Simulated scan of single mutants.
Amino acid sequence: MNLPATEELFREDSTLLHCEAVVLAQEEGGGLILDRTVAYPLGGGQAGDAGEIRAGSLSWRFSDTRKSKLHPGAILHLIEGEGPTPETRVTVAIDAPRREAHRRFHTATHLLCALLPYPVDGCSITETTARLDFHTDEAFDKAAIESGLRRLVAEARPVRQRWISEDELDANPGLVRSMSVQPPRGLGRVRVIEVEGVDLQPCGGTHVNNTAEIGALVVTKIEKKSAKTRRVVLGFAQVGAAGSGLSPA
């Protein structure tokens, strides 16, 4: 059975938290495929969304969102047991705090790329941490990185998404920072994220609209993973109990 690609509403507006959809199929293992969704599937280092699918008085919790390997372009909402039957009209609602954390952390990694201009050979973005692995043997200064992040967040720089042609990307190969993941090809265009005056690179993830929305960050770890790899892990910061300082959230 050939299924159409899932319409990815999150690509154009990552603030959308729910949408109406129609069930197309359910793969073995619990992957429910809809004609459209606001749920981002695991990819580009960013974790997938979780949430709930509702049909009338019935509801199904989905614990993760993935790309289908059987149906190119289709997105799986991972549920337990049997889901709604094909052609059922449903509402998809994602976990707002999880999405917000992903948006804030993903944009923060773009700021980190601007502060540390080295090739990236690893990335992970979850609800609680963001990690980038940089291909370099240079030592990193934790205080300098945190200071740079505070400055860029406080500058409240606009964050925009736009599309460029594959020819434009080929003419500017330096836009691609990742050593292991290349932008998808074959569509004739590539989505890029621009942090005004700071960073521009291909990216399919979800982001905030302004760096001020990221909030306070801390560098929780700087680690030497190999002779040529330095890992930086970020966390959100919060005012301590006594209101006297910042601590990891």
Rank of each mutant, 00 (worst) to 15 (best):
M1H: 05
T6I: 01
E7M: 04
E8G: 04
L9W: 00
L9D: 03
D13K: 11
S14L: 02
S14M: 10
L16V: 10
L17D: 15
H18F: 14
E20M: 05
A21G: 10
A21I: 11
V23R: 03
A25G: 07
Q26G: 06
Q26V: 12
G29M: 07
G30L: 04
G30N: 08
G31V: 13
I33C: 09
V38N: 00
A39W: 07
P41T: 00
G43C: 10
Q46G: 00
G48C: 03
G51V: 14
I53S: 06
S57D: 15
F62R: 08
F62A: 02
S63Q: 10
T65W: 09
K67N: 06
K69Q: 12
L70E: 12
P72Q: 07
A74R: 11
L76G: 06
L78W: 01
I79F: 05
P84C: 09
P84W: 08
T85D: 13
E87T: 13
T88N: 05
V92Q: 01
V92N: 05
A93N: 08
I94T: 02
R99E: 05
E100Q: 13
H102M: 04
R103D: 01
F105T: 07
T109I: 13
T109Y: 12
H110G: 10
H110F: 09
A114F: 10
L116Q: 05
P117V: 01
Y118I: 04
V120C: 07
V120I: 14
C123R: 15
E127T: 12
A130G: 11
R131F: 08
L132I: 00
F134M: 06
E138H: 14
D141I: 07
K142I: 13
I145S: 11
E146Y: 04
G148E: 10
G148T: 05
L152I: 05
W163M: 14
D167S: 13
E168S: 01
E168C: 11
L169N: 09
A171L: 09
N172M: 07
P173S: 12
V176A: 03
S178I: 09
M179P: 04
M179S: 13
S180F: 14
V181C: 09
P183T: 03
P184S: 08
L187H: 12
L187Q: 14
G188E: 07
V190L: 05
R191T: 07
E196Q: 11
V198D: 11
V198H: 03
Q201H: 10
P202H: 04
C203W: 03
G205H: 00
T206M: 12
N209V: 00
N210W: 00
T211I: 03
I214P: 10
G215N: 08
V218A: 12
V219A: 09
K224Y: 06
K224D: 11
K225W: 09
T229Y: 00
R230Q: 04
R230A: 02
R230E: 03
R230S: 06
V233M: 03
L234G: 04
G235S: 12
G235F: 09
A237P: 08
Q238I: 13
G240T: 15
A241N: 06
S244H: 13
